[in-house]
Design a protein around this nucleic acid. Structure first.
Lengths: 166, 166
DNA sequence: CGTGAAAGTTTGATTGT
DNA sequence: ACAATCAAACTTTCACG
């Protein structure tokens, strides 16, 4: 399984990607203005980011509390049996559940950090039971219910720009 | 401080918002096709979502591992002194740091769940020290370094549609 | 809500650095 | 290999029915 090599990014790439992470609704003209390039030069770069899988998608971010009542929770999970197959099955279940917003496999006593999004406290409890309590391969789990969202987003820090590009 | 009332969503709204959460790059024509509406009707609805703050922003999501080496970590934090001012200060610091991707205030023995995005293990450590170790109002914190990302996103489950809208 | 015309945006061919 | 320009195609916008 060949690793896709990371494409080298120059200063303009980093500027552009930061603008796009912040607000992908800007026009090519506007983006070009900000980075000192013509719209079509910007377009060619963005097309390349997509082709390379650097930009995986473009999404609308909804405000949890204006969409309706929303309960966010972080769940820490440790599996019982730790075989490759057990991990694969757990990951598959997390991917399949729309109310699992994020899931990371982590180092240390806990195996997974799972972020849940539910529409009520009751639903959040049901979800936890269904996903974790009913799974007899889960040794223990702990639910940390959020009562305030200080910050959200998926923004990544970009690497320092590499002067030239191949 | 008046709570903004949640706008009622009909079935079409829920369909549209789900499409936009998944991929906001679609054209109004395409969206209209999927929900059985004209492009301009779709546009009017989307304009309303924005005005109501239901859609807070539209962003490009980058792939952490193709952007360059990336280390994601979840940090659990408990403050020492728990006054309103201490919480406000902590929250402000999280909001100001670009490498803090997400931050939730939670119920239970831990006060906060913080998601960090760094460009190396070393930088992740430095960040943790700078944000948490150097803060003498933090009683304890625990870093859970992610070695696999099973799922990411900010997708929210939408409420069941309300038949009529005012 | 739909239609359609006007304004704005993206796309791609071409040419130049 | 990459950038700018321009014209064609497509999208969004908005007044009107």
């Amino acid at each position: 399984m060949p690793e896709t090599p990371t494409p080298r990014l120059d200063e303009t790439d980093v500027l552009l990607l930061d603008l796009l992470q912040d607000d992908a609704g800007r026009t090519l003209y506007e983006l070009g203005d900000q980075v000192g390039l013509s719209p079509s030069a910007v377009q060619r770069r963005i097309a390349r980011y997509r082709k390379d899988g650097l930009i995986s998608r473009q999404v609308a971010v909804l405000d949890p509390h204006r969409v309706g009542p929303t309960v966010l929770a972080t769940v820490l999970v440790t599996l019982d049996q730790e075989s490759f197959e057990h991990h694969r099955e757990f990951a598959e279940r997390m991917r399949a559940e729309p109310q699992v917003q994020q899931c990371y496999q982590v180092a240390g006593p806990w195996d997974y950090v799972v972020v849940l999004a539910a529409r009520s406290m009751r639903e959040c409890g049901r979800l936890g039971n269904q996903l974790f309590k009913a799974d007899d391969n889960i040794r223990r789990y702990e639910t940390l219910v959020a009562f305030d969202t200080i910050k959200t987003g998926l923004t990544l820090p970009l690497p320092a720009p590499q002067p030239g590009r191949p």
